[in-house]
Deep mutational scan, measured.
Amino acid sequence: MKVTIEENEETGKFTIKVKTEDGEEKTIEIPKENLEEILAKLPPNVEII
Rank of each mutant, 00 (worst) to 15 (best):
P31M: 12
K13N: 15
L39H: 00
G12D: 07
E25W: 14
L35C: 07
I49W: 02
E37G: 06
L42G: 00
L42N: 00
L39E: 00
E29W: 07
L42Y: 06
E29D: 05
T15V: 14
N45A: 05
E29Y: 09
K26I: 15
F14P: 13
E36Y: 13
E24V: 12
I38R: 01
E21G: 10
G12E: 04
E10G: 09
L39Y: 01
K32E: 03
V46P: 03
E25K: 02
I30S: 03
E25I: 13
N45G: 13
F14W: 07
E21K: 10
A40M: 07
E21N: 09
M1I: 13
D22C: 12
E29Q: 07
N8A: 04
I5E: 01
K32N: 04
P31V: 09
I28C: 15
E24F: 11
E10Q: 10
P31D: 15
K2M: 10
N34C: 15
T27D: 02
K32T: 05
I16Y: 02
E10I: 11
E21P: 12
I28E: 04
I28F: 14
E25D: 05
T4R: 05
K26A: 08
E6S: 10
K32A: 10
P43W: 14
V3Y: 04
E24A: 08
E33C: 07
A40I: 04
K41G: 11
I48K: 03
F14D: 13
P44G: 08
P44S: 09
I38N: 02
K32D: 03
E9P: 13
E21T: 10
D22P: 01
E24C: 15
A40K: 11
T15H: 07
V3F: 04
E36F: 13
K13T: 11
T11P: 02
A40W: 02
P44W: 11
I49Y: 04
L39T: 00
V18Y: 14
K17H: 13
P31L: 12
V46Y: 11
E7G: 05
I28M: 10
T11G: 08
T11I: 02
E6M: 11
T27K: 05
E24W: 12
I38P: 00
V3K: 01
K26E: 10
T11Y: 03
K26D: 04
I28Q: 04
I38C: 13
L42S: 00
N8Q: 04
T20V: 04
P31I: 07
K13Q: 12
T4M: 08
V46L: 05
P31E: 14
L42D: 00
K2D: 02
E9C: 15
I5G: 01
L35Q: 00
E29H: 08
T27W: 14
I28R: 02
T4H: 06
I49S: 07
I48C: 08
E6W: 14
E29K: 04
E21W: 11
I49A: 05
K17V: 14
I48Q: 02
E7S: 06
N34G: 12
D22T: 09
I38H: 06
P43M: 10
E33A: 10
T27F: 13
E47C: 12
N45M: 06
I5F: 04
N8P: 01
E25M: 09
N45F: 09
I16C: 07
K19W: 15
I30M: 05
T20D: 08
I30D: 00
V46Q: 03
K19F: 14
E7T: 05
N45S: 07
E37W: 07
K2E: 05
I28W: 14
E10F: 13
K26R: 12
K17G: 02
E25V: 12
K13R: 12
P31H: 09
V46N: 02
T27G: 02
K2A: 05
V3T: 02
P43E: 05
G23F: 03
I16M: 04
A40N: 07
L35G: 00
P43C: 14
K13C: 15
K19C: 13
L35P: 00
T15G: 05
G23N: 03
T15C: 07
P44D: 07
N8V: 03
K19T: 14
V18T: 05
K26L: 14
T4E: 06
D22I: 04
K19M: 14
G12K: 03
